[in-house]
């Protein structure tokens, strides 16, 4: 009898979808209520049901877009992390730790500080994408050339690339900024933070997040196969080389959008898939969805703390996720390295 062994969780059950959806709804409400001056549930309800008083408009016109942006960036970070973990076949892989987010940040910094003669709204995502892509390819290449495939080796390669890119970004900021550009703006973005988007910005973010999610979902079967190792994946029909190249492109797009709208936010991409795996099991298609929802919940709550903890100042979002996520990462690392 195998009664003592709990079967692995497998797939998205209705209960789970309801639970995570409810969690997201509650965290959005918390996000709407949170701020310099906390809104009561009654005020929240009034605002959401069409009241046009100044208080209500503060919530619907200012907080709502910001909370939605936080949810979308969180979703991107969550399923982006899931793509990276699947791609690197490593539960410690994360765009931030592996330097991909750092690469996107270098690209974005160039777009913000260098007059390129193209609209910034166009240059920023494209350069962020190029940065994320080159950094990811570089880490994967270093890992492959040096033959390290284990968690620690790959993370070290990622940490080195991230450090180089961080230095490069700081140098660019020092060298290129002048009176016309507020370094404060760039810095607060580097530390991670959701800006309150206008209607156009929010629409763009919605479309990009949706497109990225659909692309990510197409990689589900391939990531499952890749998790068997490259030989088995190949013998089960996966064109491994092409699939990895494709997934790096998709993952870089996800990271670029997340960084362009949310700056550098650490550890959400690590924690969300990890928690998701406990809920829906190791199959990647349900895991991508679960990671997106968990990431959204996490960032909405973290952003609420960012706005409400030290009013009137705002704490950078990246600091909050790093303080909360860093110990989580260390815990996972310790558990993994223990013989």
């Amino acid at each position: 009898m195998t009664a003592a062994i709990t079967p692995p969780r497998d797939g998205f059950t209705i209960q789970l979808a309801v639970l995570l959806g409810l969690g997201l709804a509650i965290s959005v409400c918390v996000g709407l209520a949170a701020g310099h001056d906390w809104a009561s549930p009654a005020r929240l309800l009034a605002a959401l049901t069409g009241d046009r008083s100044l208080d209500s408009r503060l919530i619907t016109d200012w907080r709502l877009p910001r909370v939605l942006a936080a949810a979308l960036v969180g979703a991107l970070l969550g399923f982006g992390g899931c793509l990276f973990q699947g791609l690197f076949r490593n539960p410690l892989a994360e765009p931030y730790l592996l330097g991909s987010a750092g690469g996107a940040a270098v690209g974005a910094t160039v777009a913000l500080l260098v007059p390129l003669g193209v609209p910034q709204a166009l240059a920023l995502p494209i350069l962020a994408f190029c940065g994320a892509w080159s950094a990811t390819v570089m880490v994967l290449f270093i890992g492959r050339v040096s033959g390290v495939v284990d968690a620690a080796g790959l993370l070290l390669a990622g940490v080195a690339v991230a450090a180089i890119l961080g230095a490069l970004r700081s140098f660019l900021m020092l060298a290129l900024s002048d009176e016309s550009i507020s370094l404060q703006v760039v810095l607060s973005w580097v530390l991670g933070g959701i800006q309150t988007p206008g209607p156009a910005g929010l629409s763009v973010l919605v479309i990009l997040t949706g497109a990225c999610l659909l692309l990510a979902l197409t990689t589900g079967r391939g990531l499952d196969l890749l998790g068997l190792g490259e030989d088995m994946a190949r013998s089960f029909g996966l064109d491994v080389k092409r699939f990895i190249a494709m997934t790096i492109l998709i993952g870089s797009a996800v990271v670029a959008v997340a960084v362009a709208f949310g700056g550098l936010v650490a550890f959400v991409g690590l924690a969300a898939p990890h928690l998701g795996r406990n809920l829906v099991g190791p199959r990647h298609r349900p895991l991508i969805l679960a990671s997106a929802l968990i990431g959204a919940i996490t960032v909405v709550l973290a952003d609420a703390i960012a706005r409400a903890a030290l009013p009137p100042a705002e704490i950078p979002l990246g600091l909050i996720t790093a303080i909360a996520g860093g110990p989580f990462f260390l815990f996972l690392l310790a558990r993994r390295l223990r013989p």
């Binding site: 076949r89 998790g227 068997l228 030989d231």
Partner: peptide, 13 residues
């Protein structure tokens, strides 16, 4: 193809 050694990266069933 059944290789000599096989260890999945994730804890599948």
């Amino acid at each position: 193809y059944m290789p000599q050694a096989f260890t999945p990266h994730w804890d599948i069933s």
